[in-house]
Lab assay of single mutants.
Amino acid sequence: TTVHLNGVTYTFPNPEEARKFVEKLAKTLNLKVEVHNGTYHIE
């Protein structure tokens, strides 16, 4: 599972880890999250 954040790409072997990371980040920084083909894009 891949996460794109400010031009940096993070790869998680575990989709659940990626989801938790994204949710925590989005909540902390009040960001918008979009998912395209299983890839998270955070703005």
Rank of each mutant, 00 (worst) to 15 (best):
V8F: 11
P15W: 09
E17I: 11
V22S: 02
V22Y: 02
E17Q: 11
K20G: 05
H41N: 05
T1K: 07
T11N: 10
K32C: 07
T39M: 12
K27M: 15
G7I: 02
Y10P: 00
I42D: 02
A18N: 00
I42V: 11
T39D: 15
F12M: 01
V22M: 04
E34D: 06
V3K: 00
V3L: 05
K20I: 10
L29N: 11
R19M: 10
V8C: 15
H4N: 11
N6Y: 10
L25Q: 02
T9R: 13
T28S: 07
N6M: 12
V22I: 13
H4S: 08
H36P: 01
N6V: 05
F21E: 01
F21Q: 01
K20A: 12
N14R: 06
E43L: 14
A18E: 01
E16K: 07
E17M: 13
N6L: 11
F21K: 00
N6E: 07
G38M: 03
V3E: 00
R19E: 08
K32F: 05
T2F: 12
H41F: 15
T2K: 15
F21W: 13
T11D: 07
L5R: 02
G7S: 06
G38F: 03
R19Y: 09
Y40W: 14
L25R: 01
H36D: 05
K27W: 10
A18P: 00
L5V: 14
E34W: 14
L25Y: 04
V35C: 10
G7C: 09
T1I: 08
L5A: 05
I42S: 02
E16P: 03
Y10D: 00
K27E: 15
A18R: 02
T28I: 13
N30W: 05
H41V: 13
N6Q: 07
T28N: 12
E34T: 15
K32L: 07
T11S: 11
N37P: 02
T11I: 12
L29T: 09
P13R: 11
A26Y: 04
E23C: 07
V22Q: 01
G38K: 02
R19C: 06
V22D: 00
L31N: 01
H36S: 06
T11P: 05
L25C: 06
N30L: 07
E16L: 08
N37K: 04
R19V: 07
T1E: 04
E43H: 13
E23K: 05
F21S: 00
K24Q: 14
E34M: 11
P15G: 10
E43N: 10
Y40A: 04
Y10A: 02
N14G: 10
R19K: 12
V22K: 00
F12V: 00
T2Y: 13
N37H: 06
A26V: 14
L31G: 05
V35K: 04
L31D: 01
F12S: 00
P15F: 11
V3I: 05
N30M: 06
E17D: 12
E17N: 07
F12L: 03
E23N: 05
K24T: 14
L29A: 10
E43M: 14
N14F: 06
L29E: 12
F12W: 02
A26I: 14
L5T: 03
Y10R: 04
H4R: 12
T2W: 10
L5E: 02
H4K: 12
K20D: 10
N6T: 04
L29D: 09
P13N: 12
T2Q: 14
V33C: 10
T9Y: 11
F21D: 00
N37M: 05
E17H: 09
L31F: 07
K20N: 08
H41W: 15
K24I: 13
K32P: 02
E16M: 09
A26E: 11
E43D: 07
H36L: 13
H36G: 03
H41Y: 15
G38D: 05
V33E: 01
T2A: 12
T11A: 09
E16G: 07
N14I: 04
E17Y: 08
G7Q: 06
E16H: 09
T1F: 06
G38H: 05
L31V: 13
N6W: 14
E23L: 06
E23Y: 06
L31P: 01
T9E: 11
Y40N: 02
V8Y: 11
E23G: 02
P15T: 09
G7R: 06
Y40V: 07
N14Y: 06
L5C: 14
N30T: 06
V8A: 09
K20H: 09
K27A: 15
Y40K: 01
P15A: 13
T9S: 11
L25H: 03
H36V: 15
F12H: 00
L25V: 07
F21A: 02
K27F: 13
N30A: 07
H4G: 02
E43K: 11
V33D: 01
L29Y: 13
T1D: 06
T39H: 15
N14W: 04
P15N: 10
R19D: 05
P13K: 12
E43C: 13
V3F: 03
P15M: 11
E23F: 05
L25N: 02
N6K: 07
T9L: 13
L25W: 08
R19H: 07
H41I: 15
I42H: 02
A26G: 09
T11W: 12
H36M: 10
T28F: 15
K27N: 14
Y40R: 00
K27L: 15
G38Y: 03
N14H: 07
T39G: 10
E16Q: 10
E17L: 14
G7L: 04
V33K: 00
V3Q: 00
P13I: 10
V8I: 11
T11C: 14
T1W: 08
N6I: 06
V22P: 00
K27Y: 12
L29K: 04
G7T: 05
N37L: 04
V8T: 10
E23I: 07
N37D: 12
T11Q: 12
V8R: 12
T39Q: 15
V35H: 05
K27P: 06
T2P: 07
L25K: 01
K27S: 14
T1M: 08
F12D: 00
T1G: 10
F21L: 03
V8K: 12
A18G: 03
N30S: 06
Y10N: 01
T9C: 11
K20M: 10
K20W: 08
L29Q: 12
N14L: 04
Y40F: 09
L25S: 01
N6R: 07
T2I: 14
H36Q: 07
N6F: 15
G7A: 05
T28E: 15
K27T: 13
Y10F: 12
K27D: 12
N37Q: 06
T9Q: 13
G7F: 06
F12C: 11
I42N: 02
V3N: 00
V35F: 15
G7N: 08
V22A: 12
Y10I: 14
H41K: 04
R19F: 09
I42A: 04
N30Q: 08
E43F: 15
V33M: 04
L25D: 00
K32Q: 06
G38V: 02
A18I: 03
V3G: 00
I42M: 06
T11E: 11
F12P: 00
Y40G: 03
N14Q: 04
K32R: 11
T9I: 15
P13F: 08
N37A: 04
L29F: 12
P13T: 11
T11F: 12
P13M: 10
V22R: 01
H41E: 05
K32W: 05
N14K: 05
K32E: 03
V8L: 09
K27G: 14
I42Y: 04
E43G: 07
K27R: 08
R19Q: 09
P15H: 13
L29I: 07
L25P: 00
K32I: 10
N30P: 07
V33G: 01
E43T: 15
N30E: 08
E34Q: 09
E17K: 11
A18C: 13
Y40P: 03
G38P: 02
T9H: 08
E43Y: 15
F21R: 00
K20V: 09
K32V: 08
T2H: 13
V8W: 10
V35E: 06
V35W: 12
P15I: 09
K32T: 08
V3C: 04
T28V: 13
A26Q: 14
L31Y: 06
E34I: 14
I42Q: 01
F12K: 00
H36N: 07
P15S: 11
V33F: 11
T39P: 02
L29P: 10
K24C: 15
P13V: 10
L29V: 07
E34V: 14
T2V: 13
F21V: 01
R19G: 05
H41D: 04
E43I: 15
H36K: 13
L29C: 15
P13G: 09
E34L: 09
Y10H: 06
K32A: 04
Y10S: 01
H4C: 09
A26L: 14
E16R: 07
I42G: 03
N30C: 10
V8N: 08
T39W: 05
P15V: 08
G38R: 01
V8D: 06
A18D: 00
N14V: 05
G38C: 11
L5Y: 15
T11L: 12
P13A: 11
H36E: 05
K27Q: 15
T2G: 06
K24F: 15
N30K: 07
N6C: 15
G38T: 02
E16V: 08
